[in-house]
Simulated assay, not measured.
Amino acid sequence: MPWSRLSGLRSDLPHPARMYDHYLNGKNNFAIDRSAAADVLAPAPEVRGMAFANRAFLRRAVSFAAGCGIRQFLDIGVGLPTAGDTYECAVLATEEARAVYVDNDPLVLAHARALSTRPGRVHVAEGDLRDPGTLLERAAGRSGLDFRRPVAVVLTAVLHYLSDADDPRSVVGELMAATAPGSALVLSHVAADLRPEAARATAETYRLSTAPLFPRALRDVRAFFTGLSLVEPGVVPISTWRADRLPRPHADRQWMYAGVGRKPTGGARSGPRA
């Protein structure tokens, strides 16, 4: 979910979180967001399907993590609330699930807090992905995640809003270094090499928003899982991740990658404590 570089409730610029909400047929968006989304969808109508595919991947991946015994979920860049969020997906597998939602956008935080009706189960924290140390401290301290136990770190459709200068690979490395063995990384990312022309055109439109878009090739997305054990089938087009028995309309036109990695058991770990 989008990671804005500009603070404040900006209504004079398109906002990727609100554009994403529009792709999902939501109501939390402005005319300027719908106009920018239309500019994206005109040459690449599959982007709307990609947004839905990303939500479907989230459901499958969170269910997988819960099935592995993970009960804690750290969703970074959670975006505007929609049905089937991380906690709802997890609780279908276990009533013991709890989640921390993190974002740096005031609008997203306001909506998340207003709709959080699960006391003790879901916490909302302000945090910046470009400052993972502070983000982890807040998740452990104010929101009560226990990093001595496995955590699923959810980074769906968010890392492509960090430039190479932001060093997203180091960001992911610091986040996972703080987690216990057996933790999981759930990640999806816009692809630069599946439909390059569409990716370039879409990135051009997002340059005018509060958060530019940086698609990446398969090798770069795989690099985010360095030090982790990739869950089969690895990093693959998003609609194909563990979806063998599910319908996948227009999957060949969706240019996003997705994957899940597990932190090997055994070995030392350092990180924030509650």
Rank of each mutant, 00 (worst) to 15 (best):
D12W: 04
D12A: 10
P14G: 12
Y20R: 07
Y20C: 08
H22E: 06
G26H: 09
K27V: 11
N29V: 02
N29Q: 09
F30W: 14
R34Y: 00
R34C: 05
D39G: 06
A42I: 01
E46T: 13
V47R: 03
G49N: 12
A53S: 15
F57W: 09
L58I: 13
R59L: 11
V62I: 15
S63C: 14
A65N: 10
I76R: 01
G77N: 09
V78Q: 04
V78P: 01
A90M: 08
A90L: 06
L92S: 13
A93C: 14
T94G: 13
A99F: 07
V100N: 07
Y101D: 01
N104V: 03
D105Y: 10
A110S: 15
G120W: 06
G120L: 11
V122S: 02
H123N: 13
H123D: 14
V124P: 05
G127S: 08
R130M: 03
L136G: 14
E137F: 01
R138I: 08
S143H: 11
L145E: 06
D146H: 05
F147Q: 07
F147D: 07
R149T: 15
P150F: 02
V151F: 02
V151E: 04
A157V: 03
H160S: 02
H160F: 04
L162K: 05
D164H: 09
D164L: 09
A165V: 05
D167R: 09
D167G: 01
P168M: 02
R169E: 13
S170F: 00
S170H: 03
L175P: 12
L185I: 01
V186G: 05
L187I: 01
L187M: 07
H189G: 02
A191E: 08
L194E: 03
E197K: 13
A198I: 02
R200L: 15
R207S: 13
S209R: 06
S209F: 02
T210V: 14
P212E: 05
L213G: 00
L218D: 08
F224I: 00
L228M: 10
S229I: 04
V235I: 12
A243Q: 08
D252R: 14
R262F: 13
A268Y: 05
A268T: 15
